[in-house]
Simulated assay, not measured.
Amino acid sequence: MLSLRRQADPTQEQLGERAGLGRRTIGRIENGLAPATLDQLGAIARAIGVPLWRLVRDE
């Protein structure tokens, strides 16, 4: 997810605002400290303009 966010270029705070999540939540998901729900992943995918499967298969 981190590489896709960086390609889309929002900060964690901007992505959180677009996805309706907190910056801290975005950071914890990106760093593997908290699992993301399917709803959160869907919101993140929409916020950075990629299909949901891209987040799941991001390497």
Rank of each mutant, 00 (worst) to 15 (best):
A34E: 15
L55H: 05
R28S: 10
T11S: 15
S3M: 11
T11N: 11
D39M: 05
M1F: 11
R5N: 02
L41H: 02
S3G: 10
L41C: 10
L15T: 06
R5Q: 04
E13N: 11
N31E: 11
A8K: 10
R5V: 09
P51V: 01
D58Q: 12
A43S: 14
I48V: 12
I29M: 08
V56H: 00
R5H: 03
L15C: 08
L52Q: 05
A19I: 01
L15V: 07
T11H: 08
T25M: 04
R46F: 01
G20H: 09
R5T: 06
R18A: 14
P10N: 11
Q14F: 00
Q12M: 15
I48D: 04
G20N: 09
G32Y: 10
L38M: 15
V50D: 06
V56T: 12
M1G: 02
G20E: 10
P51K: 01
M1L: 15
Q7A: 15
D58C: 09
R54I: 00
R24P: 01
L33E: 15
I48E: 08
L15A: 09
W53Q: 06
Q12W: 09
S3I: 11
R28N: 11
L4M: 11
R46N: 12
N31K: 12
Q40K: 05
P35C: 00
A19H: 02
R23Y: 07
